[in-house]
Nucleic acid binder design. Structure first.
Lengths: 178, 178
DNA sequence: CGGAACTTTCAGTAAGTATTGAAAGCTCTG
DNA sequence: CAGAGCTTTCAATACTTACTGAAAGTTCCG
């Protein structure tokens, strides 16, 4: 049996806590709720599935909170639930491949945010069709430019996130990075 | 003098309000404060610089709020202030070129969010260097993968946002979009 | 210098979001 | 079909973030 000094364990625990806290803070600034980001962080760095109770315990959060955010993460496709045979409890495990994670996030944000935005912009463009005042012209031009931009972004992201390409992607991007 | 029927004006106003409201809502979901996004929207679709008072009036917000958010927008480089000769008031005008806007946002988010994130991740990697337990190994591998990912993203975005390329960019991306 | 015109700050408050904890719902098993 | 074990929901509440409005600060001009 190999030795794992208590001090090393403490050092690791501290690093893990730091990571979870920071990932949570980052989430906030990207419009993602702190707890959700923390749970995600915790699952990413834990090499085995965790139960709701373990998540509650680690992060000192309530059952309701843990439950809801785990569900959301599953909804995003970033976490999957695992049922062990013979156990009634549900366990959760995060996708650990960063490129797959990236593709998943791109795909979801595209669906949840970019596509609706395009619809809204198109609506705005339509509403002023045919108006002749200079103000109307300015409005129409700007909304149309934004709309085209979003459509291009949408198309580019579709290509980038095409799941069967997630193996090539790191390679391609690293090349792009020069 | 050309005719601009009141109904057309009303139609335009409604469309403008809709656009401002929706852009504000979009901002929220991207972690940007609603008012800031609304001011940005308003300035984008107004073909002349506006004063703080005009912004307050249009959006029905307080002076303090208008002021702070205008400052933030200037800080992001999305809005510039214009001083007309002979006038003491300050006016504000948004960048209208969507590709320049895009580059500005990329550059700022990179600086404010990606770079600090890389620093944090590096810190986490360092803290567990040399630890041997399997848990430590898992942690170290995951943080390292995230760190490399962020560095690649950082490099790619640097290239994309290089300001002198903002003319080629639309072309390049439209090509990428297939 | 006095004060008009405008900008900036910030304590207090309002509005919006996230969290808790307890109750209600399932589902399996004896 | 009773109840243990686990999940789900949600009203109440805590926390966070954004906004207001008034006061203080700056700049310019006669």
């Amino acid at each position: 049996m190999s030795e794992i000094p208590a001090s090393e364990q403490a050092q690791l625990d501290a690093a893990r806590d730091e990571f979870v806290a920071q990932w949570g803070a980052m989430g906030s600034s990207w419009g993602i709720n702190r707890t959700m980001a923390q749970i995600h962080a915790l699952l990413m760095i834990t090499p085995r599935p965790l139960s709701t109770d373990e998540v509650m315990e680690e992060l000192k959060i309530s059952r309701g909170n843990a439950h809801m955010n785990l569900r959301d993460l599953v909804g995003w496709g970033l976490v999957r639930s695992v049922i062990r045979k013979g156990e009634r409890k549900e366990f959760f495990e995060a996708e650990r491949d960063v490129w797959k994670m990236f593709c998943t996030i791109v795909r979801e944000r595209k669906r949840r945010e970019i596509e609706p935005a395009i619809a809204v912009l198109k609506g705005c463009v339509d509403r002023v069709e045919g108006l002749e005042s200079p103000e109307a012209k300015a409005f129409s031009e700007q909304t149309q430019a934004l709309c085209e931009f979003m459509e291009t972004a949408d198309a580019v992201l579709s290509r980038v996130a095409r799941s069967d390409e997630s193996v090539v992607l790191p390679w391609a991007l690293k090349y792009l990075a020069k």
